Simulated assay, not measured.
Amino acid sequence: MAPKRNAKGEPKGAAENGESKNGVAAQNGGNDLPERNILITAAEGQTGRLVLELLLTDETYASKFTSLTALVFSEDAKSTLDDFMQTEDIAGLKEILVFDPDDEETLVEAMKNIDTCLLIPPARKDKAKITRTLLEASKKAKTVRNLVFLSSVGCDYAERDKQPRLREFIDLEALAMQPKGLTETELTGHSPCVVRAGFYAENLLLYTKQAQGEGKLPIPIGKDHKFSPIPLGDVAQLCAHILTSYGQHGLGEDVRGQVIIATGSAMYAGEELAEAASQALGTKMEFASISEAEAKKILASDQGEEVDEAEKEYLLEYYSLVREGKTNYTANIAFEHIFGTKGQEIVDFFKVYSAEFKPKKRRITKSGGSKAKKHAQD
């Protein structure tokens, strides 16, 4: 489900700076900065699209790069991104590349025009293979100095036999950092940064059917263990800052060579999450501790039809980490240090999506009867 706020945390439709929309800082906004040509992979996904939107519409970032290219994984994905750009009235994207695993030459040639890459592994079963292919192409291009890899919080606590989808991020992180020590790849990966993003708060939108119909949030995390959801827009802000940061060796010195762990600003048990929702919605919301089997049923229903099977496996594995007590921490120090704020609070997240979560009122028949089962539309 697409977020209803833009990458700056504002409601959709909030005014943007008009000058930033049309020019991708062709003259670096008058700033005396080195040329920077950015590539974002998996740009059809929610994270990629929000980072694109932020870079192209916020003058804070738009004045700090020369060109912006998107890479998607199918022609359908290209159409989806094209539609998104037109719908949101966003201009300035240099090119949308379609990934072809059998055409390495074209991919390498495209990489030669890139010096900075946000490598987002796609939410699909072959993401490890695709990530390896992209990293190999960047090595052969020898130009991608600044490599920002989007990983996942919890991957270091995941066990290979119990949470393989999570654990594979550790292997991919190692591949992303490897080029820095290889002289034959020249500039590739000389200035790396790994961002381990936490559980996206937007994943809670999978349970809006139960929230609206029953006033419940059914999550398989047990009653006592906690986790720290982070709004997607905060992750996009962090990535945009890193991609447009400047230092002596590439990325800014505050992020270069860092493994940045990004969670929300507070930990929540299930009931605390429901309390935050109740506060935001102005109506009672309850937490329902469900089993993993019940969670699988929800994901297998029409509620999870837009979620890739690999992403479903990832979500279930993350919930298992929560139940094992391995997510009882927060880590938003980097975000607060950079932006001077803790980011969007979970109460505000529920306010943004209040129409999706708020229970629908029952229709009242003309006779005042209470047997009507249909719900009124908000």
Rank of each mutant, 00 (worst) to 15 (best):
D83T: 14
Q248N: 14
T106W: 04
V98T: 10
E75W: 03
K342V: 04
A62E: 02
P179S: 08
K12C: 08
Y207N: 05
A174P: 01
F349A: 08
L135A: 03
R167C: 11
L39V: 00
E136S: 14
D58A: 07
E324K: 13
A262F: 02
E272I: 06
V352L: 13
K78I: 02
S291C: 06
S301H: 12
E53F: 00
L232G: 02
E313P: 02
V148D: 01
A269Q: 05
I114V: 12
G23A: 10
V259N: 05
S74N: 09
T365V: 01
H241W: 10
E272K: 13
D115Y: 11
R145I: 02
L97V: 10
I114A: 03
K4P: 01
I242S: 02
K296W: 10
L204P: 01
T87C: 06
E309D: 14
K64L: 03
K21Q: 09
R160M: 10
F227K: 05
A7Y: 01
A240S: 15
T188I: 04
G213H: 14
S278L: 09
F357E: 03
K21N: 13
L71C: 09
R167E: 09
S370N: 06
I333F: 11
T185W: 08
K162A: 11
A277R: 08
M85A: 07
Q377R: 11
T133Y: 11
L107C: 07
L81R: 01
T365Q: 08
P179G: 09
V352E: 13
K4A: 04
E202P: 08
G264R: 06
G343E: 03
E75P: 00
V255C: 15
K342N: 10
E186F: 12
L55D: 01
R196G: 01
S67D: 09
E184L: 01
E305W: 11
T41G: 02
G250D: 05
I242Q: 07
S370T: 14
